[in-house]
Amino acid sequence: MAAILTQGTHVEGIDSLVELIAGRRVAVLTGAGVSTDSGIPDYRGKGASKRTPMNISDFLSSPRSRQRYWAGAHVGWKHFSEAEPNQGHLALAAMEQAGIIEGVISQNVDGLHRRAGSAHVVDLHGSLDRVICLDCGQQFDRSGIETTLSSLNPWLDELRNIVLAPDGDVNVTDFDNVVIPQCTVCSGILKPDVVFFGEFVPLKIFGAAASLVKRADVLLIAGSSLAVNSGLRLLEQARRKRMPVIIVNRGETKGDKKATIKIENGTSDVLSELATKLGASNLYEDIE
């Protein structure tokens, strides 16, 4: 399949998308580029943190690594949790309500699709608003853990000039005295309910994502460079089914040569215009 690359204005590309999507069931895969207009940087764009994300083996084996992680995660959480859904999130929610798309598979951990009104969301890499105990499996709301972190480490809340990463982390260099909350049930190790570096996407979660693609007629990939294997596997599943694949992203992706259409532009603009042209404008305005 040859990709049609559209730069600058995207009207011609949008018309091609409308023709390809109209009357078909659409599954959507989103990446970090969908959330950049909400103030959350992507992994490669301007403002992205250059630090290495937390590796699960370090987190499990090293109390110091857990101190470093929770210090940065706590400092970043306030800014991360205050991010609001942007026009792209709202457009996807409106298209779902209009029956245009079947649902969203998100590689992001910010929860903005649900907050925008999307009902069928597969959080491929988890969500930062949940915390789990690795010992007993108890689940906690993130806000309660953050309150405890603030009471144990009030000085962290005074830090300024932070650089937020896509996963909500911040590089905090002074973390030797950070006190980490423990599970209130078994005193076990707490971890955000997200997939760290070195972890696999749970089979049940990937199965839900694969089922969504299987039921669809078109796969729309928005804001993802497809650098993560889970996203590429879903693209390959669509290709095996001979489904049209649409990619909307600023910059090159690993799936460009396999796309039916590639629009090189911002996701907010493209998804907003797509929602309007497909007749979801009334719902889109109601959600806003």
Rank of each mutant, 00 (worst) to 15 (best):
G76M: 00
R142I: 14
K277M: 11
V170R: 00
D174A: 14
L90F: 12
Q97D: 14
N282D: 14
I21T: 14
C136A: 12
A94E: 05
M95H: 04
A83G: 03
E199H: 01
D269L: 14
K254P: 00
W155H: 12
E102D: 12
V104P: 03
L203F: 11
K50G: 14
D286N: 13
H74Q: 09
L219E: 02
F197Q: 07
H79C: 08
V11P: 00
P154W: 03
S143K: 11
R233S: 07
D110Q: 01
L271S: 07
W77G: 05
G47R: 05
L149R: 04
L29S: 01
R239Q: 11
G198I: 03
I145E: 02
P166M: 13
G33I: 01
P154I: 09
H89E: 05
S211E: 15
R239S: 08
R115V: 08
A210S: 15
L20N: 03
K241F: 05
G8H: 07
R66G: 13
W70M: 09
I4P: 05
K241S: 14
I287V: 11
A73L: 10
L17S: 02
E199N: 01
L212I: 08
F196K: 04
A27Y: 02
A71V: 06
R215A: 11
E199D: 05
D169S: 09
L234H: 06
R24H: 15
Q139M: 09
T52N: 07
H113Y: 08
P181H: 07
V122I: 15
V194D: 06
K78V: 14
G103A: 11
H10N: 08
S268R: 04
L5T: 13
I205N: 10
A238D: 03
T267G: 01
I162S: 01
L156D: 06
P166V: 08
S211Q: 15
T6S: 09
P53G: 14
P244T: 09
D157W: 00
D269Q: 12
R68P: 07
G198P: 08
A98V: 07
R25F: 00
G31W: 04
V178G: 06
G266R: 12
V185E: 13
F140E: 13
V179F: 00
G144L: 12
D15R: 13
R25N: 13
D15W: 06
H120F: 03
A209W: 02
Q97P: 01
R233V: 01
G111M: 09
P154E: 11
S268K: 05
V228R: 09
